[in-house]
Design a protein around this nucleic acid. Structure first.
Lengths: 339, 339
DNA sequence: GTGAAAGCGCTAACAG
DNA sequence: CTGTTAGCGCTTTCAC
C-alpha cells in the first residue's frame, strides 16, 4: 500500500523516512549508515538493504552542518596570465581531485595573485572548505600567511622556509644540480641560466641547484651568464641576445615558458639546436614535447604532487599527524637538444 | 562586562549572537541581512553596523540547508589524457570561477571520461552543487543525458543537437568555413584537413565548416585530403605522410594538439612552413604561439565562454529564463604560416 | 515592523 | 543494542 500523497515528485528521501519505514529511530539509521556505535547485524542489514533498494544518499550538507564540516577542500590556483599557460597547475588540480574523490571529498577551486588573495578570503569566510591546497609558493606568501592566521589546515605544493607549513614538493634544487652536473661533466662548460620571477620560491631553488653543481666541481658560476627575473618576453629575448655574444654552449631555462620563448628566438636568429646551442629546461610539459629536436628537461609530476597533497590534507583534517615535508620524485629526461 | 567564559577561542559568531547583543530576534537579524521582509531603517542600520564591526559572516552551509541550496556549481572537465594538455579547459574553468565568485557562488570541479561519469554522479548524489557546467560535448553525451534525467540545471560549453540543452559556444562551423574560405580565395587550392575524434561534437562542426567553404564556391572537398579520427600521434604522422604524396599546399589542423604534431613531423621531414607547406589550426593556444613561424588559427576565447556559462547557469538556478544558445565571438588570426 | 516556533537532514550526548 | 532529546545556523510560515 503506497502513500500516494507523499512526494510523488521524488523529494529526496531522508534518514527520517527510513526510520519510519523500518520502525526504528533516526539515530539507529544514522549509526547503521556511519558504522559508528553498536547496531545489531540484523538491523544493519535491513537498513542497508533499504538504502540500496531506494537508492538513498545521505545529505552531505546536513551532515556537514551537524559536524561543522564541509567535506570540501580548496585548491588555490595562481591567476597570473603567464601561469595559466603552464599545464603544471592543471595536473596538480587533477591529482587533488583524484585523491579527494577517493576519500569522499570534493574540490573547490579559486584563484589568487601574488598580491591579491580576496577570493581565498571569501572562500574561507564563507566556510566552504575544511582545508586548502596551495599550488605555488611565493617568497612572502600572502595566502600561506593568511591561512596560518585563521588557523585553517592547509598544505603547500612547493617549498617554504617556514617549517610549520606542510609541504609537498619535488626537490628542484637537487634536480637542477644534477642536470647541470650532467651537462658540465659531459664537457659542456659555458652554461647560461635563465630564470623567472625570484619571488617564486621554486625559481630560487632552481638557481640554487645550478650554483651548487658548479660548487660541487670546485668551480664558480659566471654571474654574467645568469639572468634572473625574466618576467616577460622582451627580457627573455634580451637575455638570449646577450648570451649570443658570450660564447655560450648551453642555455638552461628554469621553466617551459621561458624555454619556448628561447627556442623561438633562437630559431629566428637561425641558431640551430643543438649544433650551435644546446638547450635544456627545468620542466617537461607539452609545450616542449612538440619541439624538434626534443628538449632535455626535468620532468616534474604535477599530478602525483596533487594526489599526495590531497591525501595529506585530508589526513590532517581527519586529525592525523603529518611530517612537514614530502618529496615526490622527479626525472631527468635527456634528449637530443643537449647531445 | 565581558562574558569571559564564552568562546575566547573565537568560535564563529552567529545570527543568534547578534540577536542577543542587539535585543532582537534571530528573524529580524536574518531579514536585515537578506533584505527580504520589512525591517525598520534604524534596525537595519544597527544590524549592519554590528556585522561590520564584528566581521560577521553568515554560515553558507546553514543557509544552504535551510534553503536546500549549496551555492556551489560544478565544472566537469574531461579527464582524457590528450585533453589535459589543451589549455582551453583551464581557461573555461577560470572563466566560470570568475563569474561564480562575482555572484557569490563557488566552483566544484570533477572529471569524467567519455564512457565513465561515476564522479559526476557522485557529485550530484552527494548534493554538493546546484547546477553543472559541462565543458565538452560528445555526440552521445552520457553526462548531459544523466543530468537531464535527474533534472539538475546545467549548461553546456559546446554544441548539441538537443535543443532542450542550454548551450554556450563559439560558432566553429562558420569559423572554419571562413578560414578555409580565406585560404581558398587567396589561391590555395589543395587543402588537407586533419581532425580528431569524431565523437566529439566540435570536431564534426569543424569538418562541416571545412566542407561548407568548398560548397560555397561550388567546389567539392577531395575526400582523399580529409583525415578523421586522428586520435594518436601515429595516425597523425601517417596522415601527414599520405598528404606529402598528394601535392597539397596547405594543411588545416582541427586543433592545436594535432597541429603541434604536424609541425614537428614536417620539421623532421625538412618541409619548410610556409614555403613548402602552409599550415593553419582551429585553435590558438600557447602550444602554437611559441612556434616559428607563427601559426594562422582561429582564436577561441575559453575564458569568455566560461564566464558566460557561469552567469547563465547561475541565472537559471535563480529561476531566470534563458535562451537555448549563446554565441561567443571567435577571431581568425592570420599569421605567417599561411602567407 | 518584529517575534516565536518549526524545520532543513543529520549527528551526538545521554539514557536505558 | 536502541531511543530520546538537543542541537548545527539559518530561513520561513504565521501571528501579533
Amino acid at each position: 500500500m503506497y502513500d500516494i500523497n507523499k512526494r510523488s515528485t521524488s523529494k529526496n528521501i531522508t534518514i527520517g523516512d527510513i526510520a519510519k519505514e523500518l520502525n526504528l529511530s533516526k539515530t539507529t539509521i544514522s549509526r547503521a549508515i556511519s558504522g559508528k556505535g553498536r547496531v545489531s547485524a540484523e538491523t544493519r542489514r535491513k537498513v542497508h538493504e533499504y538504502i540500496k533498494l531506494h537508492n538513498y544518499r545521505p545529505n552531505v550538507i546536513a551532515r556537514g552542518l551537524a559536524q561543522s564540516k564541509t567535506y570540501n577542500i580548496g585548491v588555490i590556483l595562481p591567476a597570473d596570465a603567464n601561469l595559466v599557460e603552464i599545464p603544471f597547475f592543471q595536473s596538480c588540480l587533477m591529482g587533488v581531485c583524484e585523491s579527494a574523490a577517493g576519500l569522499d571529498y570534493d574540490v573547490v577551486v579559486t584563484t589568487v595573485t601574488d598580491d591579491d588573495i580576496t577570493l581565498l578570503k571569501r572562500l574561507i569566510n564563507n566556510q566552504k572548505v575544511d582545508g586548502v591546497v596551495l599550488t605555488r609558493s611565493m617568497v612572502n606568501d600572502l595566502s600561506a600567511k593568511y591561512l596560518k592566521e585563521v588557523g585553517i589546515p592547509f598544505v603547500l605544493i612547493g617549498s617554504s622556509e617556514d617549517e610549520e607549513i606542510i609541504q609537498i614538493d619535488s626537490d628542484h634544487t637537487t634536480g637542477c644540480c644534477e642536470l647541470t652536473n650532467i651537462l658540465l661533466k659531459s664537457g659542456t662548460e659555458r652554461i647560461a641560466l635563465l630564470v623567472g620571477n625570484q619571488n617564486i620560491v621554486v625559481n630560487r631553488s632552481r638557481y640554487e641547484g645550478f650554483r651548487k653543481a658548479f660548487q660541487d666541481l670546485g668551480q664558480y658560476t659566471d654571474s654574467d651568464l645568469v639572468f634572473l627575473d625574466l618576467n616577460n618576453i622582451v627580457l627573455i629575448q634580451q637575455a638570449v641576445n646577450a648570451i649570443l655574444d658570450k660564447n655560450v654552449e648551453c642555455i638552461i631555462c628554469a621553466d617551459d615558458f621561458i624555454c619556448s620563448r628561447v627556442l623561438a628566438h633562437l630559431e629566428e636568429k637561425q641558431i640551430k639546436v643543438p649544433d650551435m646551442m644546446k638547450v635544456a629546461s627545468f620542466y617537461n610539459s607539452s609545450l616542449l614535447e612538440t619541439h624538434n629536436p626534443p628538449i632535455t628537461a626535468i620532468k616534474i609530476n604535477g599530478k602525483e604532487l596533487g594526489i599526495t597533497a590531497g591525501k595529506k590534507l585530508i589526513g590532517i583534517i581527519s586529525g592525523e599527524e603529518s611530517s612537514h615535508k614530502s618529496l615526490v620524485n622527479y626525472e631527468i629526461v635527456l634528449k637530443k637538444s643537449t647531445s
